[in-house]
Design a protein around this nucleic acid. Structure first.
Lengths: 201, 201
DNA sequence: ATGCAGATCTGCACTTACTGCAAATCTGCA
DNA sequence: TGCAGATTTGCAGTAAGTGCAGATCTGCAT
């Protein structure tokens, strides 16, 4: 990595850190982009050469999980049906320590719940991911399920994962360890997708 | 209806019509709220006493469909399972002639596809609807399915309907009649939810 | 008809996100 | 050391959205 790249990465991280700090302290809406840029010691205009918008700051590398699912689809065995592939994919998602349990995770979830703009962006990312997965699934299992069935299965999958996370994160007050969380999501999703497991193959 | 109410309704409609005209002619982004207000002959400031934002203009009465589904859940028979209820609800949604086939429908779908802000709002509405339906379903069938299963089923249902509409609206070039469209969506959704029909019961 | 109370409309000033442009600055490399 | 290309930054501008206060209008009782 050149000096340029290192510097850029450092500035980027500084922006995320500064923003997180400010969001936590004074809320999302009361924090302006100018505030964030000033805290990271760059010009306001320069902020937008790092992130296209204020919301974008909260969703870096958001397609890593989609890529993991696509990889799971591509590496399917002849014995697997579409539902099995999705459930297997659940075990391969990269828990980079920043997405569900990292320091930013709680803040991100809080902001998704409370700030419409952030919520909108999150939903857009989720929907795009869902569409992409459904498309790939329909292609990979073209001989077994049509586009609508693939969309239904993907919707069930995403809906189940989302709900499981919601249930698990809201109840105990204490966030479980990543491993426990993972296992619980897996169990709940597994049960929820049961109707798809054997009959469709 | 008092004169006040009639006047207000007329102004509201004038705003929608003016906006639709302008969006069609010069695109969403190149149409400012001031343009719309001027075309409807009201002050710019007044626009925001009719719609909270520019996007809101495109999504009036967006919860009519949710209400229809909730009504279907509430009027369930003991013989019906959750999937059956959802499929039955599909027959009771009000096709007010403005939602899928009306003059605004094509424009709305076009803007949802191309304008991120509109897309974001549409997804937010859809997601909220999905959550509400899942919640009601879990309550109504508390003895048969848990929250995660309810969310999975709802996700499958919404995903299937969305995909069916997408497939049907993109292919022929000619939009089918409301009745045909309805029947086709029903058939596709019916097939896609088949795994949920008998086993869960 | 008249006049009052409350609702509605509207202009004004303001904040904020975001963009285009051009000048200044910096980095990689010969 | 110096050049080419990339990055940074200030400036000016557009547009959405908000609070406020005064003007205007509607419903209703007299």
């Amino acid at each position: 990595m050149s000096l340029r790249d290192r510097k850029r990465a450092r500035t980027r991280q500084a922006l995320v850190d500064a923003a997180a700090e400010l969001f936590r302290r004074q809320g999302y809406d009361r924090t302006t982009v100018a505030d964030i840029a000033a805290a990271a010691e760059i010009g306001t205009r320069t902020f937008f050469s790092y992130f296209a918008s204020k919301e974008e700051l909260l969703f870096p590398e958001s397609d890593a999980r989609v890529q993991a699912v696509i990889a799971a689809i591509d590496s399917r065995t002849p014995a697997e049906g579409p539902a099995e592939v999705l459930l297997r994919a659940l075990g391969t998602v990269p828990d980079t320590g920043d997405d569900l349990v990292g320091p930013l995770a709680a803040l991100r979830l809080e902001l998704i719940r409370t700030v419409p703009a952030v919520r909108g962006r999150a939903l857009q990312i989720q929907f795009d991911a869902q569409q992409e997965i459904a498309r790939r699934l329909a292609e990979a299992f073209a001989d077994r399920i049509d586009r609508v069935r693939a969309a239904a299965l993907t919707g069930a999958f995403v809906g189940a994962v989302t709900a499981a996370l919601q249930v698990l994160l809201e109840d105990p007050g204490q966030p479980a360890s990543p491993a426990e969380l993972h296992a619980a999501v897996r169990a709940a999703t597994d049960a929820a997708l049961a109707p798809w497991l054997r009959p469709a193959g």
